[in-house]
C-alpha cells in the first residue's frame, strides 16, 4: 500500500496531529462530518493509550477497499509492556492509569472492525477500520 501515513506518537501533540490527519483522510474517503468526528475520536483514544502505557509508538493510517466499500484503517503499534488481561482491558470503565476507562473499549464502539493483539513484555497492536456505507 503506497498511500499509508505513518505518524510517530511520543508526546501529547502527536495525539492531536494523529486525529487531525485521521479526520482529513476520512474526509478524502467521503465520510460524513459526523463519521469523521467519530474516527478522529477513536484515533485520539488509541493514540493516548500508546502514550499512557508504552510512552511511544506509531499510528498508521490508510484507505482500504473491500469490494465496493471504502474505509479508513487505523493501526496503532507500540513496543510497550503489553496487556496481560485483554478481556479486562476491553471492559468499559476499566482503567489502570486514572483514565475513565473509555480508551480501548470506547474506540471499539466507535469503529466497525476492531482487533487487539498483545504480548506481555513485547507490545500491543490495535487494528481498527471504519467502513463507509455503500449505496
Amino acid at each position: 500500500m503506497g498511500d499509508e501515513l505513518r505518524l510517530p506518537i511520543a508526546a501529547d501533540v502527536d495525539v492531536v496531529e494523529a486525529r487531525q490527519q485521521g479526520r482529513a483522510l476520512a474526509a478524502v474517503a467521503g465520510f460524513s462530518s459526523g463519521e469523521q468526528t467519530v474516527i478522529a475520536a477513536a484515533i485520539s483514544e488509541i493514540a493516548r493509550n500508546i502514550l499512557m502505557y508504552a510512552k511511544k509508538g506509531e499510528i498508521i493510517l490508510s484507505l482500504v477497499q473491500n469490494g465496493d466499500r471504502q474505509g479508513v484503517s487505523v493501526v496503532a503499534i507500540d513496543q510497550g509492556p503489553g496487556i496481560t488481561d485483554i478481556e479486562r482491558a476491553m471492559q468499559y470503565g476499566y482503567s489502570t492509569s486514572h483514565g475513565v476507562g473509555a480508551g480501548l473499549p470506547g474506540a471499539k464502539r466507535l469503529m466497525d472492525d476492531f482487533d487487539l493483539q498483545s504480548t506481555p513484555g513485547q507490545g500491543t497492536t490495535v487494528t481498527m477500520t471504519k467502513w463507509r456505507r455503500a449505496i
Partner: peptide, 14 residues
Amino acid sequence: IQPDVAFAMVQLGL
C-alpha cells in the same frame, strides 16, 4: 458542543 462532537461523545459513552 458541536452536534457531531456530541454524537461521537455519547457513542464513546461520554
